[in-house]
Simulated scan of single mutants.
Amino acid sequence: MNAQEIIRSIEAEQIKSNLPDIYVGDTVKVGVKIKEGEKYRVQPYEGVVIAKRNGGINETITVRKVFSRRGR
């Protein structure tokens, strides 16, 4: 067994199977963890997925925050 096969087998054990499929263009709700002093809080926001990178356990998405100005 080479190093890549070992890494893939470990990743296969760790990856979650119950996550929804996310595609570029989807609107998602995200919770961002913010540190204020010694405490953390989660600030939720909604945005559009504009990029996806990598795959499997290392997959990342880029979300552009939807910013609406109502009343102007």
Results as ranks from 00 to 15, higher is better:
Met1Tyr: 04
Asn2Tyr: 01
Ala3Gln: 13
Gln4Arg: 10
Gln4Asn: 05
Gln4Gly: 09
Ile7Lys: 03
Ala12Gln: 08
Glu13His: 04
Glu13Ala: 10
Gln14Met: 01
Ile15Val: 04
Lys16Asp: 02
Lys16Phe: 02
Ser17Lys: 03
Leu19His: 01
Leu19Asn: 04
Leu19Pro: 00
Pro20Glu: 01
Asp21Pro: 03
Asp21Cys: 01
Ile22Thr: 03
Val24Phe: 11
Gly25Ile: 00
Gly25Ser: 02
Gly25Gln: 01
Thr27Leu: 05
Thr27Val: 07
Val28His: 03
Val28Gly: 02
Lys29Cys: 05
Gly31His: 06
Lys33Trp: 04
Ile34Pro: 06
Glu38Gln: 03
Val42Ala: 14
Gln43Gly: 12
Gln43Pro: 07
Pro44Phe: 15
Pro44Trp: 15
Tyr45Trp: 10
Tyr45Met: 09
Glu46Thr: 06
Gly47Arg: 13
Gly47Trp: 05
Val48Trp: 04
Val48Phe: 04
Ala51Ser: 11
Arg53Leu: 07
Arg53Phe: 10
Gly55Val: 14
Asn58Asp: 05
Ile61Phe: 04
Ile61Val: 04
Thr62Gln: 12
Val63Trp: 09
Val63Arg: 06
Val63Gln: 07
Val66Trp: 02
Val66Gly: 03
Arg69Gln: 09
Arg70Lys: 06
Arg70Gly: 11
Arg70Val: 05
Arg72Phe: 08
